[in-house]
Write a protein that binds this DNA or RNA. Sequence first.
DNA 1: AATTAACTCTACCTTTAGGTAGTAATTTAA
DNA 2: TTAAATTACTACCTAAAGGTAGAGTTAATT
Lengths: 137, 137
Amino acid sequence: MKLNNTSQYAIRILAYIADHKEKSLLSAVELSTALVIPYKFLTKIMTELVKADFIESIRGREGGFKLQKKASEIKVDDILNIFNDSIKEEECILGIGFCNGMCKCALHDQWMEPKLLMQKMFRESSLEDIAGRGCKI
Amino acid sequence: MKLNNTSQYAIRILAYIADHKEKSLLSAVELSTALVIPYKFLTKIMTELVKADFIESIRGREGGFKLQKKASEIKVDDILNIFNDSIKEEECILGIGFCNGMCKCALHDQWMEPKLLMQKMFRESSLEDIAGRGCKI
DNA sequence: AATTAACTCTACCTTTAGGTAGTAATTTAA
DNA sequence: TTAAATTACTACCTAAAGGTAGAGTTAATT
């Protein structure tokens, strides 16, 4: 029961950028070094974040990345959705395809409360809320 | 953010056995058919459940599987632990190796409450609590 | 004793997640 | 205008999860 690696990296990257708004641009090398994420893998993730319109990229020398939206407008859940790692409304914790009121899995009722709390947490936490907390990594 | 396939199968298998205690033994074929889990994969999981002392296997013709403990004594969390899919106390949701009071990740505080609720749910739900709920699959 | 229906073990195959390599394209500065 | 610093793209590699195959072992039935 955990987030996948790519989601974890993406959240850390975006939180880091949000936490460094004094710099107008951050390069892939800087991010890779600061966050200890393999450079090539980071650039791959960056490309997806750009395509998802969360960050803007400036190409060429002196280029880099910056947020394309206000930090308060990017929720953790939006990031998870890019990598298909969010908690889907109707997805069953035991993986059965038709878990609902009519026919529910053994854990359906017990799962409801933790699920709703997690969804709420992911949906309500923005980059602004989480950036700058703790060790900035 | 989901349980892995093997954990899901294992929970469904054990809940199903707990829900059919009128039968003294259930065979792998029966379980595979009833739960729609690939036979060969199911037998592999059964072997792990036997080794973990959750179920007992009777070999030979007329053999099969049954619970080795009372249903009330097997918690969902115990099952997750076999497949390394439980929520570890100190594991960081963003995957950083030293996320604690001194140096915590950006999501550390927000994650605390949902994490505790999930742990509680997994730790307190026994097979007895979940068996026979819903559609028995 | 042979047959049959079961579990067990070892090895392998397939798919997906995670990660790497190399090159092309873009932009700025010297 | 060239070199350097940057992102973008395509293709590939590796490890882990998920799943399959087949032969071996056990024990009840006939």
